[in-house]
Simulated scan of single mutants.
Amino acid sequence: MTSNQQTGNRKKPGPLTRASLWFQRRTNVKTNEKIRRKGGKIMGMDLLILHTVGRRSGQRRESPVTWFDGGDGTRLIVASGGGSRHPDWYFNLVAHPDKTAIEIPGESAVPATPQALEGAEREQAWQRITEAQPRYAKYQKKSDRRYPVIRLTPR
């Protein structure tokens, strides 16, 4: 998997501080606990827990991520990151694609192969995603950064 350039028209993000990283990680922990306890549907969207390894730290990371059915047992995820930048988990996937796993509520984490979709494949996946959740089309319109769409294939 390779990283594409990230630019965006939305408000420029400030530097990540220790406090903001701590807050994000704590929020992820709480959301992951909720997913494991109550299932993966939050605010009308299906969530999974994406297991990655930090690109710089080498530490295991778990991120709650909205997913969409990609067909053939695959799942599609969008690296929207709030519109302003790619989320950290995306860069972790790029750096360590072989250390990726997905956890669906009620199941153990399984290794997965991430693939950034391009061209017609991406367009078909994007159509599927925006039909299921039109809010993603609204988010994309607010940013000139094209959101990466990732297919996760269980290994």
Results as ranks from 00 to 15, higher is better:
Ile42Pro: 00
Gln140Gly: 01
Thr130Lys: 08
Ala19Phe: 13
Ile129Phe: 07
Pro148Leu: 10
His51Tyr: 10
Thr153Lys: 12
Asn32Asp: 10
Leu48Tyr: 06
Ala116Gln: 12
Ala132Gly: 02
Lys99Asn: 11
Thr100Asp: 01
Gln115Ala: 12
Ser84Asp: 09
Thr100Trp: 04
Gly82Ser: 07
Arg37Trp: 05
Pro105His: 02
Arg122Trp: 09
Ile77Gly: 05
Ile129Tyr: 02
Ser3Met: 14
Asn92Phe: 00
Ala116Glu: 10
Glu131Ser: 12
Arg135Gly: 11
Pro114Met: 00
Lys11Glu: 14
Arg145His: 11
Gly119Val: 09
Pro148Val: 07
Glu118Lys: 13
Ser143Tyr: 05
Arg18Glu: 15
Arg151His: 04
Trp67Leu: 05
Ala109Trp: 06
Tyr147Val: 07
Gln6Ile: 13
Ala95Thr: 10
Thr100Tyr: 00
Lys30His: 12
Arg60His: 13
Ile77Thr: 11
Val110Asn: 06
Thr66Ile: 13
Pro154Met: 04
Gly81Ala: 01
Asn32Thr: 04
Leu48Lys: 02
Thr66Glu: 11
Lys30Ala: 14
Met43Asp: 15
Arg25Glu: 12
Leu47Phe: 15
Val149Ala: 03
Trp126Glu: 03
Pro111Gly: 12
Asn4Trp: 15
Gly83Val: 07
Glu103Thr: 07
Ile77Trp: 10
Ser80Lys: 09
Lys11Asn: 12
Lys41His: 10
Ser80Met: 06
Gly82Gln: 03
Arg155Glu: 12
Pro111Lys: 12
Val65Ser: 03
Ala109Pro: 12
Lys141Val: 05
Gln115Phe: 03
Gly81Arg: 00
Arg145Leu: 11
Val78Ile: 10
Lys12Ser: 13
Ser3Ala: 14
Asp98Arg: 11
Thr113Ala: 14
Arg128Ile: 04
Asn28Ala: 14
Phe23Ala: 15
Gly73Tyr: 08
Val94Asn: 04
Arg56Ile: 10
Pro111Leu: 11
Thr130Gly: 09
Tyr90Lys: 03
Arg56Val: 05
Pro148Asp: 09
Arg122Lys: 13
Gln124Glu: 15
Pro97Cys: 11
Gly44His: 06
Asn4Tyr: 10
Gln133Cys: 08
Arg36Trp: 01
Pro148Gly: 13
Pro97Lys: 08
Ser84Thr: 11
Gln127Ala: 11
Arg151Tyr: 01
Thr52Tyr: 09
Thr7Met: 10
Pro134Trp: 10
Arg75Gln: 13
Leu16Met: 14
Lys38Leu: 11
Pro111Tyr: 05
Val94Lys: 06
Leu47Val: 02
Tyr139Arg: 10
Gln127Thr: 13
Thr153Ile: 03
Thr52Ser: 11
Ala137Tyr: 05
Thr7Asn: 12
Ile35Glu: 02
Glu118Tyr: 09
Thr113His: 13
Pro87Ala: 09
Ala109Ser: 15
Pro13Leu: 07
Val94Ile: 15
Gly83Cys: 04
Gly40Asp: 09
